[in-house]
Design a binder for these strands. Structure first.
Lengths: 231, 231
DNA sequence: CGATGAATGTCGTCA
DNA sequence: TGACGACGTTCATCG
């Protein structure tokens, strides 16, 4: 990994075009050819970047005719697409390289899959007498997150989200339409379950006769005793 | 901006939990308190991070009881949420700070807004005799990208996307439902226009009587002579 | 490979 | 500030 602090301007040409005026920035060059251009603020997203795999050519004013004041030009070309990043360097402020080795990678806990596993194990959170039919119930248009049966024996399709938005309601609506064509299952009700449900999504769901259920992941995790410290 | 190369392990606790085992990584500390943890590969997304605004406390083994081998512990706490990043440093390899100043920011060209402007100017791309009613036609459930009239005088609602996906078709469907309740406008047809339309989206749109139109941004840009070199 | 859906999404805009 | 939609979304999974 090479780290460069430099006064530079940057142009991107590819899916769109973008331009960064002259300023001092951090340039990160990774082993796979990817390049990040960061300022001293904002979140993790760089001002501009090139995704791997990519190749970089370095041009000097001796080789090519460059704009006045440019001491070096980097041309970063994507190996797969015709996206290209052009960095004009006006002043090198710092330049260092480091050998980092391969990273063992990230271990996560608490994503939608975990939520689904927990709700399947605690299906009675949805109401007394609920029983699990199965998780990831496959249909022609994709898998229903959870299929269950309520106390009266009626089928219930559950769509799970961490954040409940309109498109999640649309998704569940499509599933319900399809499932209700199956005489063995019909009538099928829908439950939209999420840690947080947006007002518009709640309105749309209610309007379509879909029940909304807010989930408390921490509480669900606390109940599940198999869920003892991952790390 | 402070750049640290260090052998470290990282834990994130917040909306979910995540853990990074011991390895050599780049740690970027920005002026607004944000922190990025990068490996020497992958795209621009860090392995782990903290969004601004945030505050960092540095603990040493003299102050607190730390794990064996930890020479320093950073606790990065989000100022707004209770998200927290804990970085255990086992070895400092490099440490430098640089004053970057404020960045002038990015200038873009070719996003959906540009596409909309071009299509409004070249509305006859949709068919002979089309005329523009207006862009960003406001409704109770959001703005319709473009409202036009066809050669026969019928109203047409156009949803524009760079990449046409199912949710775009759903969006247009909601607009059409609403617009068709207005006796002054009804009947309103829909056109789903995008640079690229996914097969499933095309099927859904066609099934609902919505016309699909693929747009060539470069060609549209070439026709529009006001669109002379932005930079 | 392409298609599909989640994401600690992030980022802008506008009420 | 919160809701909403775009994004060079990126990312993993699955066919």
């Amino acid at each position: 990994m090479r780290l460069v602090i430099a006064k530079c301007s940057v142009d991107y040409v590819g899916r769109l075009k973008a331009h960064l005026p002259l300023a001092v920035r951090l340039l990160v060059l990774k082993a796979d050819g990817s390049v990040l251009v960061h300022s001293d603020g904002g979140s993790y997203k760089p001002l501009n970047w090139m995704s791997p795999p990519a190749n970089m050519r370095t041009l000097s004013p001796d080789d090519v005719d460059l704009e006045t004041g440019v001491v070096e030009q980097w041309i970063v070309q994507s190996a797969k697409t015709d996206d290209r990043l052009i960095i004009n360097i006006y002043e090198h402020i710092s330049d260092s390289s480091h050998d980092l080795g391969v990273d063992p990678g990230l271990i996560k806990d608490g994503v939608e899959a975990d939520l689904q596993r927990l709700l399947a194990a605690q299906i009675d959170l949805l109401g007394d007498g609920y029983t699990l039919i199965r998780r990831e119930y496959f249909t022609a248009i994709g898998p229903v997150d959870i299929l269950a049966r309520d106390a009266k024996g009626a089928t219930v399709a559950i769509e799970l989200k961490r954040r409940g938005d309109i498109d999640g309601v649309e998704q569940l609506t499509r599933y319900l339409e399809l499932l209700n064509r199956d005489p063995l299952l019909a009538p099928v009700r829908g439950i939209f379950a999420a840690q947080q449900i947006k007002p518009q999504a709640r309105v749309l769901a209610t309007d379509r006769g879909i029940e909304c259920k807010t989930l408390d992941y921490d509480a669900m995790r606390g109940v599940d005793d198999s869920e003892t410290r991952l790390f």
